[in-house]
């Protein structure tokens, strides 16, 4: 060191240095599997099986080529997007008024029934669903997929919004009522604009959950509507696993949700804390 800072400053510097080391260490731990997946997606099968693992290697794009050329990954991505976006929008359309009703009229018992959908294991719906959608000839259609994915997103949207609506100061709602607004107008003009950040974060979370959902898609989807999480397993075969292809496909599946999360991080965090503290 050229300058000689006082002991206090040195300690402060050391403290912040340690802080950085700790942050980097924790980030490394959490991002390691993702890094490993990325590395695997650029390796050949032999390199992936090598032990000790190969760290320095010539990257190959063969796995990504396989994903796009041999498998219609673009089609699967569109399917995933349609289903996730559809179920999230429908979830908002139904969930927001529902959450407002629960918050406004203090009907917490009703909210419990919505939560039931998340408490029961998903597979218990599948047989009745299959019978219903089969009778309606909807198996393999987007409609059936979106409706089933509602059970994934709707409870999250509703419960996050209940908390948000409860936080809207009742004075504002009373003022709206005095100015001649009905309940629906109050909901639309007062409660909705005030809870937009929560709504965005709830939609993102619902979108991600639907994007990642596997079981419902496996049973309900047809060959033309198969979303990504089901398609990704095409790289597993009986007594043979294509690790590189699997990693490339996993990277492709993860990327959109990662980007969404990074861009919308602010909303997600504020959404989580908004319902937490009641004044």
């Amino acid at each position: 060191m050229v300058t000689h800072p006082s002991g206090r400053r040195l300690r402060a510097r050391l403290g912040s240095f340690l802080q950085y080391v700790l942050v980097i260490a924790i980030v490394l731990v959490f991002s390691f599997p993702i890094l490993w997946m990325l590395l695997m997606s650029f390796k050949t099968q032999v390199q992936n099986l090598a032990f000790p693992p190969v760290i320095i290697f010539t990257p190959t794009l063969e796995n990504y080529q396989n994903a796009f050329v041999q498998n219609p990954f673009l089609k699967f991505s569109i399917n995933s997007f349609v289903v996730a976006a559809g179920s999230t929008l429908l979830g908002l359309l139904v969930g927001a008024p529902m959450a407002y009703a629960v918050a406004h009229f203090k009907r917490q018992d009703m909210a419990f029934f919505i939560l039931l959908a998340r408490i029961l294991p998903g597979i218990s719906y599948l047989v009745p669903w299959f019978i219903i959608f089969n009778t309606l000839q909807l198996i393999g259609s987007y409609v059936a997929l979106i409706l089933t994915h509602l059970t994934v997103g709707l409870p999250i949207i509703t419960w996050m919004l209940i908390g948000a609506f409860e936080d809207v100061p009742s004075e504002l709602e009373d003022a709206a009522l005095i100015d001649g607004c009905g309940v629906f107008a109050t909901f639309r003009m007062i409660a909705l604009p005030l809870t937009t950040p929560v709504m965005i974060s709830a939609s993102i979370i619902a979108f991600i959950f639907s994007w990642n959902n596997f079981l419902f898609s496996l049973i309900i989807a047809g060959p033309d509507t198969q979303p990504l999480p089901v398609a990704i397993f095409q790289f597993l075969s009986y007594m043979n696993i294509n690790w590189g292809g699997l990693a490339a496909a996993a990277t492709l599946v993860t990327t959109p949700t990662m980007i969404i999360t990074l861009v919308a991080q602010r909303y997600i965090v504020s959404g989580f804390s908004l319902g937490a503290v009641k004044g």
Partner: peptide, 14 residues
């Protein structure tokens, strides 16, 4: 239902 227009060519397994 409010579903994107891409949903129209539905794949029926019948």
């Amino acid at each position: 239902t409010p579903i994107p227009p891409t949903a129209v060519p539905k794949a029926t397994t019948a």
